[in-house]
Design a protein around this nucleic acid. Structure first.
Lengths: 207, 207
DNA sequence: CACCTAATTTGATAGTCATCAAATTAGATT
DNA sequence: AATCTAATTTGATGACTATCAAATTAGGTG
């Protein structure tokens, strides 16, 4: 991606990155509109709409048709196509990891079935789980693994739990809730500390 | 595109729409970096880089690997893929015209062959031609039609010509030049007014 | 010309955010 | 502990910009 292209893309991006302008794009996707109509549709003043339209027109995203007093704006599909091309060109190179085998060594060390370990291998990356599995069965594997990150007999404040969980996935709230729901952890009545449920009271590993 | 998706996309867009963050993306495309390295590369302070990284990490674009004191950030290709998918989904619908038949009535009124009229029907939209045809043959049809917008015997200043042509397509300069090149109009020697070439001296209509 | 309507421009205001210096946290080392 | 290094957090500042009211421009019509 050359420098001129990046500048063009940056300006296009900044134009797109506004809630009202996104709404205008969606509107204009179906047909052309004049300024008054758009102001009504978005519940904004005409000067504001005019401001946005001027900007979008300046980057070439819009076409303008004059009709008497009125100005009808419509999308410029060509320009949109250019933008989409830029976006598509952003490389999603399979990030060349330092990829030490040791990164996954901890999985092999777990006293689990091959099947469960495969789930972990599939979903972990540098010790994190960027995307949680949807299937309940695999999600349970993740939860069981998360449980190993807590010490038996120790009481954890909610904040501590959050910190530990967020190291694995951003949606730590979901994880915390799920750990309790599925019986891996318990919480003090009335909302206090959390603690690990002893292994023998837990759902057994899949086979 | 549902509402939640649009919010997600908006936040992603805002994250992308910053010069430094774009640079970071390009950097991280090849390999992981720690904060100090990135600060050096972009010639910004560490807090500033940290600020950008935090944001990018919050929307899930980055992975984080801790190594002693250092924090290595890398791209999250999955999340990038999601963003690209959003972008690709922006519709470039073939703008559905108000399509009153009356809009096209003027075409039927032309004393031309069906073939030529079909070209005009295909390319006009509310009296404009948003995308000029590439094929020379069709482009000539457009030029012949444009010629009808000028009065025989009248001398037009360049600005007048531009105004008339830009009502049809933004690239009025190309149109003006082409009208002269293909012999539909002439220009005063030394660069002055334009005028229409009498019909009988013009390239005849296709069949 | 006077008037009406559509739209833009101008000017002011408020909110967001990129940036950096200074202070703080946290891991590693001695 | 004391210290060193890497990074984040805090707080302040400046730049940008979305928004609207008021003024202005411009086409259309009586």
């Amino acid at each position: 991606m050359d420098i001129g292209q990046r500048e063009d893309m940056l300006y296009l991006l900044k134009t797109f990155a506004d809630e009202q302008r996104l709404k205008l794009l969606v509107l204009l996707n179906t047909k052309e509109y004049n300024v008054t109509e758009m102001a009504k549709a978005l519940e904004l003043s005409e000067p504001t709409i005019s401001h946005h339209l001027t900007r979008m027109h300046a980057v070439g995203l819009l076409r303008l048709r004059m009709d008497g007093n009125q100005r009808f704006y419509s999308l410029n599909p060509d320009r949109l196509a250019v933008f989409k091309k830029y976006m598509a060109e952003i490389e999603v190179a399979p990030v060349q990891t330092p990829a030490k085998v040791s990164d996954n060594a901890w999985i092999e060390a777990l006293p689990w079935s091959e099947e469960d370990k495969k789930v972990l291998r599939d979903y972990t990356f540098n010790g994190r789980i960027p995307n949680l599995p949807n299937k309940e069965k695999r999600f349970l594997v993740v939860l069981r693994w998360l449980a190993t990150k807590f010490e038996p007999g120790v009481r954890y404040a909610e904040k501590q739990v959050n910190t530990i969980l967020s190291a694995v996935n951003e949606d730590y709230a979901l994880l915390r809730r799920s750990l309790v729901e599925y019986g891996f952890m318990r919480r003090e009545r009335g909302g206090g500390d959390y603690w690990l449920v002893p292994e023998e009271e837990t759902i057994p590993s899949g086979q």
